[in-house]
Design a protein around this nucleic acid. Structure first.
Lengths: 221, 221
DNA sequence: GTCTATAACCTGATAGAC
DNA sequence: GTCTATCAGGTTATAGAC
């Protein structure tokens, strides 16, 4: 039903990253990411890529089709590699947290507009593209879940969902609100980046504390 | 330069909440909040309010003017009352955290679309309406800052900015991503609300831990 | 494959009757 | 104050020349 290349194949086995099609896709990625779907005009994309607006329709048929492609790739960026990290039997829980947080912060430093874009899309298209993404659920015996239970005890006092929320929130939210944070604290882009680098060490530490705070052995008892 | 009522006064002293003007504003609030500025058509607002599209221009002259008004009120919701909480000499730090978190969660339970809306606007209009908001900086001797220093020691190992980020992130982020969270965890709206109610107790606890973890007395020493 | 010209459509805003 | 009808402007998409 869905094909990334709507037009005929080039005949070349390898995909040429400098082809017009690729350039348009990359330009679209940048513009959609910065402004969102509704606020983006196809002319913006053509201008950004330095091409004629008609080429967009030649290669991708419509703005919407192009958006779906870019969208899908952006979403996959969010989940790429994560399952591998979480199911690795060779790493400790502490190591997993470190690797996961570093992985995400690095990715977001390179793509700082991604969080706001995703949040906008989640809103505009609640059930639309959400399923298309390979957000495959973890198997119940995934390494991280076993380790989690060991640390928190079988009957931790609050749900893992809370901790997951916190982990993602602490990593992603600062990027989503970066313009506001920077203007409020008079940080420039470099200072903000440095702050996020600090968080690579801090967030895993905080998360570990949270897991312990919810462990079976309640401080009050 | 900016006046909420562009047309002549009604002559009535009290503002009638059921006037056409008010109804349009409320409908606009709902639609803008759900879809953002760019994706909203003036016809959507008229339909939502059950009125003729022409009335929007009659009362507010343009879509943009109407948006500014609604926007401003939304943003003020975010900061309303917070300074008062943070500078109250009669409450402990722990109490302040509790009150602040409860205050925000209550407000967001009533306005769950607000976070995604704000994030979208921060992106689309980085420096535009940000200053109009009464985001008045705290005085350096604000009660909460003194109490913070007492708890963390004068030279806490990491910046208060981190903790502030975490506090806001843990409260706001779940709402910004609620549709995704609910679909991923098979929660209905009620279950999600209940989860956020739990967080009224949990977040202040976590934050306190974080402050202690960054206190002058380092666990390692 | 790429460009120019233009069609087809949509959206915000206004004029004028009631 | 509210409605109908319509305009002006801008946007996506296509037809057809090169």
């Amino acid at each position: 039903m869905f094909s990334p290349n709507l037009h005929h194949d080039t005949g070349d086995a390898m995909t040429d990253d400098f082809s017009t099609e690729q350039k348009i896709k990359q330009a679209a990625q940048r513009v959609f990411l910065k402004k969102g779907y509704a606020a983006t005009r196809t002319r913006d994309i053509a201008e950004e890529a330095g091409f004629n607006p008609a080429l967009l329709n030649y290669y991708f048929r419509s703005k919407e089709k192009l958006f779906e492609i870019v969208m899908l790739e952006n979403m996959q960026m969010f989940v790429a590699g994560v399952v591998g990290i979480l199911t690795d039997d060779a790493t400790t829980l502490r190591q997993k947290l470190h690797i996961l947080v570093s992985h995400y912060i690095d990715m977001l430093q390179a793509n700082p507009d991604l969080p706001a874009f995703m949040i906008g899309e989640i809103r505009d298209n609640p059930d639309g593209l959400m399923e298309k993404i390979g957000f495959s659920k973890l198997p119940p015996d995934a390494s991280i879940l076993m380790q989690w239970r060991t640390l928190a005890g079988e009957n931790g006092t609050f749900k893992p969902t809370h901790i997951m929320m916190n982990l993602i929130a602490m990593v992603v939210f600062p990027f989503a609100t970066a313009p506001l944070i920077r203007s409020r604290t008079a940080m420039d882009r470099t200072a903000f980046s440095a702050l996020m680098e600090e968080r690579k060490e801090l967030i895993p530490m905080w998360i570990e504390q949270m897991i312990l705070a919810g462990a079976t052995t309640n401080p009050k008892s």
